[in-house]
Design a protein around this nucleic acid. Sequence first.
DNA 1: AGCCAGGCTAAAT
DNA 2: ATTTAGCATGGC
Length: 266
Amino acid sequence: MISDRWVRLQQENGGILAECAAPQGCWDWLREYLQTAVDLSPVLSSFPADKIMRQAIESCRGLRLLRQEPWECLASFICSSNKQITQIKQMISLICENFGERTPAPSGCGPVFAFPSPDKLARLSETGLRRCKLGFRAPFLLGAAKAVAGGKLDLRAVALMPYDEARSALMGLHGVGPKIADCVLLFGFGFEEAFPVDVWVRRVLEKLYFQGEIKRPEELRGFVRGHFGPHAGFAQQYLFHFARKSPAELFGKGKKGRAALGRKKQ
DNA sequence: AGCCAGGCTAAAT
DNA sequence: ATTTAGCATGGC
């Protein structure tokens, strides 16, 4: 689903083949989502020329950012905190199935549903959302839906703000901290200076740029701002997927794995 | 069984 | 100003 459209994509000799449920007069919405007009080469050459970035680029050839619908992006990342990716997908599916609008899809796909609007979610109860397995995130998502539906948070205005102001606006929501705010700014609004530091990126930064030393979030932020250049958000994605694709023992989860690599305090 | 998850808030130093 | 629980739920 991309907003309210069902789409199936396939690689097709150097291009992308897209199939929809209904004839499309215009594909701009898909080009926007996939960001196909972005030329990667100036982005990649803007990265710092260190060995780590070269490895990340090598392991993620062709990786580019998506441009997701801001509300869906914000809601999805509110669901993401302290959850595994498979569980995040499950929560979002449940939200769509329970509260989203049914949308046309080819027969054989089963029924498909769009992500529900802020107004729709704002009218729900916390219990309704807890049934989608949101746990303690349920009141966060409900609060965000009410803020957007009620006009207290204008996402179209956020799109026009300077990065720092937009970041503060999102972090004004209960349940939205630095990481989630930066994800939404990067994937939903296209602020390329946003550099979300999640557990994986933190591990990469500490292990590869700081010899395994533990750094405080603000310290990492300072380093990132000076090091990754005008397309820092792109660099973040390359590092993130590089870490996730690497053997588990390299950027492994858990204290044991890190301790075995000689991770030191301070 | 127990640890950890694309974190954040609130309480305790 | 920084560190540390507690959180709701499920994968592995």
